[in-house]
Design a protein around this nucleic acid. Structure first.
Lengths: 369, 369
DNA sequence: GTGCTTGGTGAATCAGTAT
DNA sequence: CATACTGATTCACCAAGCA
């Protein structure tokens, strides 16, 4: 994690509960700037409230088949605009949003995200390992859905647990295409009649990756289209707080039952590989102050082509430059920048050792206290 | 192929040539309803800010061409609206279009396609097998681009060579995600200075699949952003007629030279066998995400002497080491390396089972498609 | 010729903190 | 607010040079 938290949150926030109602109205009733992350899986089909109006103020009847394609896009866009604006208002300045959709609606959502000033960070492809085949052989098997990850604004210092995702991928940077199975088997919730409780239940593995990547423990995660509560279940398991909004009583009931069964993982399991940026900063001068290197001692560049001398104030002096370990390293390599900690080496027992080793010693002493 | 052709085409069509000029004006000068397929790779409007350097300090040669600069989304949308309208006019009633883009522009293109009455048939993900990494560790590796395939209208009897694609895919239905390498090596065209002739040259393999899937021999394929002429080269190879439009003289020259060298393939050569799929890599993190092992669960070494705990990001924590299943295994055994998949075991029904069993389950699910 | 090492590169919206 | 400084950060593949 790279981001400091204030720990403050609006007192009125209904954490870890499922709210009943239309998500736009409910979100508008929540305090501004109070949510860390929103995950939204909006309906693709136009099951809209009857109170939407065309630009000419004529009322739209969402169950009326009489309207044309253009009208239906207009209504869907109006719906998208409204819920995204409501979502944006309740996000913290450094908050972020995920939306998921298929080609029916994702282009309209992506464009509207950009129109409202969200800053797209990645589009992510969920590549389904067991999709429904195309039975008629008239198109390609529709084997993926698209997620969009966006910051509230271009300036947002969004959360991204780079090292944790790298670990998930066995040490290689996580890519924008994720191969995960669809939700089947025991994970797929059934209603009392034995049918699937929700038509588009998302797999927990998908939410696991999303929440591990872009939230920290204790963050507030809101899902305006809660459905059977996959977002809440994974949030609870991972020690995040959730808020669900769902207007269908049947889905709320299934989700509540599901969430009651979920247990939070213990803290050690939740701990995640940390970025080096989270380590405390150690100025090179401390290495000299502590006598780990003496003023006048010579350092060699990693490639052995350059050398420089340590000075009492923690600066270096090279062939024709003076300055910090980074500045002199950059000058030697004629590079725009240089990490002096890994660039410069000193001799111990005939071996060349990076000065970063000394920093690690200081840090481990700091931790011990 | 599923569709009958009349064989008629407008007499004035400048087949198999590269037209000079702005694509909107040139398309408007062509006869209405005369083109079978359009493939369009328009500017992406990347909105890049400063320079980007690799960790080794080399500078990334980014797309900084004038043709990719737009003042605002409004200007870009107006451009998109205009060229798509011009493209739609010249398409035959049963014609279709492909567009390609990244998250910077593809949502706006997709929405405008729908607004104009194009009928989206699939969105297709080009998963790059060798993308550029994310050098700052601030986002996911941007490892794909998105194509949209759309008919001129909902009524269009579009061409789709289902069986051809099925055999390209070793007998199973072609999916909407295509794994193909980016254009490198000898295929990448150079200018006289030895630099890449065009910053965004597409691989021929991509166009091969597009044209094989959605055109028949003798069809007319138009590319309004011709660049170095990949669309033309593959069209000529496959016995389709092409029309290219390009306003940069330098690109036209490179494309003309390239096309002069291309020969139409004979039918036997067309049946190129595709490279076999390698056994897919399965990161241990997927086992955790999928809930096959719970974070916090304990693993035992094969000899029973060591144990370690699973963490939420797919790393392990042992007595005094953290890291991947392989790293922790190696540390326990004080060995230089270790295959964690066969080294670590978990308990099921009182028995110790190697975690490799879980990997095999995932692989068999993946193969099932 | 073969195999190994070294170097280069690809549509990229790529930093955070202290002064 | 801008400016300066610290220092974190890469994967797959291809080509060329060399043993």
């Amino acid at each position: 994690m790279t981001k400091k938290k204030t720990g403050k949150s609006a007192p009125a926030l209904p954490l870890n509960s499922i709210l009943d109602g239309d998500c736009i109205e409910v979100m508008n009733s929540l305090p501004e700037g109070s949510v860390d992350l929103i995950f939204a899986d909006p309906p693709y089909n136009l099951q809209l409230r009857g109170d939407l109006h065309r630009p000419d103020n004529s009322k739209v009847d969402a169950v009326d088949n009489d309207w044309d394609q253009f009208d239906s896009f207009r209504v869907y866009d109006e719906f998208t605009r409204a819920w995204l604006a409501a979502a944006r208002r309740i996000l913290k300045p450094d908050g972020a949003i995920w939306v998921i959709g298929s080609y029916h609606n994702v282009f309209r959502m992506g464009a509207e995200l950009q129109n409202q000033g969200f800053w797209i960070l990645n589009d992510v492809v969920w590549r389904k390992s067991n999709p429904m085949p195309n039975f008629r052989g008239k198109r390609l098997t529709n084997a993926h859905e698209t997620l969009i990850w966006a910051g509230k604004s271009e300036k947002s210092k969004y959360t991204f647990n780079y090292e944790a995702l790298k670990s998930l991928n066995e040490g290689t940077q996580m890519r924008s295409d994720w191969v995960l199975p669809i939700c089947t088997g025991h994970e797929r919730l059934k209603n009392d009649a034995g049918d699937k409780a929700h038509p588009t239940q998302k797999p927990e593995s998908l939410l696991h990756r999303v929440l591990l990547a872009t939230t920290n423990p204790g963050d507030v995660v809101l899902d305006p289209f809660f459905g059977t509560g996959t977002t809440g279940a994974v949030a609870k398991m991972l020690g995040r707080d959730y808020i669900g909004i769902e207007r269908e009583a049947e889905y709320r009931a299934v989700a509540a039952k599901r969430l009651a069964r979920v247990r939070k993982l213990d803290n050690e399991a939740l701990e995640v590989t940390q970025s080096k940026r989270a380590e405390p900063r150690v100025p090179f001068g401390q290495v000299v102050e502590r006598g780990m290197l003496r003023p006048g001692e010579e350092l060699w560049s990693i490639n052995g082509r350059h050398k420089a001398k340590v000075r009492a104030d923690g600066s270096l002096i090279g062939a024709d430059v003076k300055g910090s370990i980074h500045q002199v390293g950059a000058a030697c390599e004629k590079a725009p920048s240089c990490n002096g900690w890994t660039y410069w080496h000193f001799r111990r027992d005939g071996k060349k050792v990076p000065i970063d080793l000394l920093r690690q010693q200081i840090r481990s002493e700091m931790r011990a206290n």
